[in-house]
Design a protein around this nucleic acid. Structure first.
Length: 345
DNA sequence: AAAACGGGGTC
DNA sequence: GACCCAGTTTT
């Protein structure tokens, strides 16, 4: 039996029942694929269900506000996905009359749709013979064929794409592509796979050569920098606080947060007066204290955010503030959401 | 070619 | 702490 035939047989017997597997509608497939980029199925699934409930079609999604979409996306991370999702929904709705493109090449032009996602939609929705290469596929192919080329090198990316195309099942690409990914997610797992029950063990090069632990090879580039965040949580006499939208480059674009003082190193005190003046809050008496004595370290892939929240109580009002009741309606980073949950306005 | 971009799970 | 996850975009 061929490699792809074994994958198909394994998939038929072992596939999970996932919400987006009951349809091939390109809107649903696209939505699920964007959400699952660098995201585990278990984490993405509740978000997918929320989105299809709130936005049954791409037109509903296009008609929503970005803020509404970001709020529903809150906690899933990589927020450019949500912004690109909205932009693409508007293009599909307004320029393509609600119809998704049905070729790899045209799908690839959509914002947030790269090589993997274009192949996934083309094959799953339209049954086109395009191989998908995600993290699971890299692992399965590198082990089964014993390829030690780094999967995140330019040469490796090209090599694995070609290999994936050579071994794919053209007749049933829809199930094959999902099958090889599922196989990587369930059977050929990163750590300590149970090769004794693997249907590919008889011809797996990594198993034969005792290289399962070493494959796939990945060039590592972890460079984490520390940042020091001080959030000013304003408590006005009018039961309002202040949120600001993050703009420009960097993390959390278009999400909201409290007024932020960032410093190059840990600071023991903050200049509240100067900061308040920046927001047009003048001649007001205030008191403030550090909310968390122990620094909160919020960890992102490339940054450790060492954070203190400062509670600033004003005698007067907060102009242009957000009422305590409405504060939960804004899309905020998990770091801020966790604080709001703890603090109780 | 390398870096940036989140958050959560696992070992 | 290191690695990984149905990757893409920007630098």
């Amino acid at each position: 039996m061929t490699f792809s035939a074994k994958i198909l047989r394994w998939y038929d017997a072992n596939k999970r029942n996932l919400p987006w597997r009951s349809t091939v509608n390109p809107y649903n497939i696209w939505l699920s694929e964007i959400m699952l980029q660098q995201t585990r199925v278990a984490q993405g699934t509740p978000y997918y269900l929320k989105f299809v409930e709130n936005f049954p079609t791409v037109k509903h999604l296009a008609a929503a506000s970005e803020e509404e979409i970001l709020k529903l996306w809150q906690g899933l991370g990589y927020y450019s996905r949500a912004r690109n999702l909205h932009a693409t929904a508007k293009i599909v709705t307004n320029q393509f009359d609600g119809q998704f493109p049905d070729t790899y090449k045209e799908l690839l032009k959509l914002k947030g749709v790269g090589d993997y996602t274009a192949s996934a939609i083309a094959s799953i929705s339209f049954n086109l013979p395009e191989p998908v290469v995600d993290g699971n596929v890299y692992r399965v192919l590198s082990r089964y064929f014993g390829v030690s080329l780094p999967i995140n090198s330019t040469e490796g990316i090209k090599y694995f794409k070609t290999l994936a195309r050579e071994v794919m099942n053209v007749k049933n690409i829809r199930d094959y592509n999902q099958g090889i990914m599922e196989f990587g997610a369930i059977q050929c797992v990163p750590s300590s796979p149970d090769c004794t029950i693997c249907p590919l063990s008889a011809s797996c090069v990594a198993l034969r050569d005792d290289k399962v632990k070493e494959l796939p090879v990945k060039i590592k580039k972890t460079k984490v920098r520390d940042r020091f965040f001080n959030y000013l949580v304003l408590l006005g006499g009018n039961d309002h606080s202040l949120l600001k939208q993050r703009t420009g480059k960097g993390i959390w674009q278009n999400l909201y947060e409290f007024p932020l003082i960032e410093s190059e190193a840990a600071i023991t005190n903050v200049d509240v007066q100067t900061e308040l003046e920046q927001y047009g809050i003048l001649d007001q008496k205030f008191e403030f204290y550090k909310f968390n004595e122990e620094v909160i370290v919020h960890k992102l892939s490339h940054q450790h955010l060492k954070t203190h929240f400062w509670i600033v109580t004003l005698e007067g009002d907060v102009p242009n503030g957000v009422s305590f009741q409405e504060i939960d309606k804004f899309p905020v980073p998990v770091l801020v959401a966790d604080f709001i949950k703890t603090f109780k306005f």
